[in-house]
């Protein structure tokens, strides 16, 4: 089990690194292009062009006026569609596996884990934390409304993700650097603070956990109540108390599953069928 857990971890890390490198190299090639330096083979694009959230903020203008918000292009809308496929199937796996800013926070978090051990990711009082988790919906509404009314990328000036991949270009506003710094510091105490409290795209994708086709399920009849799933969850979701995880914060990292943390096989799984039914069917065969 231990070895299987390790290989699952490695697979996810490989995917995260792959997408981080793809995004970083695409934006660097773009910045070099702006300076008149062309890089052979590699194609560059601005971060706005390859962020599916750009597709969300431009949708209103695209539908009402047939045009894109400044700096957003067709590619962002296509990405929005592509991400929707995996989101409808399994939930916001984009957040847990693809988004380089999520990975970046997670990697900084490994330092926090070393520093604070078991106290890491448990600093915010639960009652406050519960309220703060809805803040990202406020951000989502503000960004979508403001972008629709001003037709400019209003969030860009505050976006730490944009600041991270453009810090060297001179195009980042002071507010962008400040929010990046803040997220980096907070990541030492809280796992994925931006994803938890502020990411507007995560807020949108998180709603898919209510209706995803493959759900994160727990088989209560085989569960030994060891709470390993709860401890492993970076988003502090109490998996051990539910039979289906519908929490809007689950990012499908699969750390809680029987493939990684849960010691009992087939007890926590992403499955289209109730695990109790799967177990009964398998017992009959």
């Amino acid at each position: 089990m231990k070895r299987r857990g390790e290989s699952a971890k490695r697979i996810r890390l490989t995917v995260q690194i792959l997408f981080f490198v793809v995004v970083a190299s695409t934006t660097v090639v773009h910045a070099l292009g702006e300076m008149g330096i062309s890089v052979p083979v590699l194609a560059g694009a601005s971060l706005h062009a390859i962020c599916p959230f750009g597709g969300v903020v431009t949708l209103y203008r695209l539908i009402t006026e047939g045009a894109y918000v400044q700096k957003i292009h067709e590619s962002a809308v296509w990405l929005l569609g592509i991400v929707m496929i995996s989101t409808v199937l399994v939930g916001p796996a984009f957040c847990g596996w693809v988004c380089p800013f999520g990975s970046f926070q997670e990697w900084i978090g490994t330092i926090g884990k070393r520093l604070f051990k078991r106290r890491y990711n448990r600093f915010v009082p639960p009652r406050l934390d519960r309220v703060l988790r809805y803040l990202r919906y406020v951000v989502l509404i503000w960004v979508v409304v403001m972008t629709a009314t001003t037709a400019t990328l209003i969030f860009s000036a505050y976006d730490p993700y944009y600041a991270l991949f453009n810090f060297y270009t001179g195009e980042v506003a002071v507010t962008g650097y400040v929010s990046l710094g803040l997220v980096m510091v907070l990541s030492l105490f809280v796992e994925r603070p931006f994803c938890k409290y502020a990411c507007p795209y995560g807020a949108l994708l998180g709603t898919a956990n209510l209706f995803r086709i493959f759900r994160l399920r727990r088989n209560a009849s085989t569960c030994i109540d060891c709470k390993a799933c709860d401890t492993s969850c970076p988003m502090n979701i109490r998996v051990s108390t539910v039979s289906v995880v519908r929490d809007h914060q689950c990012n499908v990292c699969l750390k809680c599953t029987s493939e990684q943390s849960c010691p009992i096989p087939h007890t926590v799984e992403l499955n289209s069928t109730r695990l109790e039914d799967v177990a009964t069917r398998e017992a009959r065969q």
């Binding site: 991400v83 399994v90 796996a93 984009f94 596996w97 693809v98 493959f214 992403l270």
Partner: peptide, 17 residues
């Protein structure tokens, strides 16, 4: 039907890239 870490990795790389 069960979705494993491997299948999610495969699905994301295939759909995105």
């Amino acid at each position: 039907m069960r979705v494993t870490v491997r299948s999610i990795a495969f699905m994301l790389v295939v759909t995105m890239i």
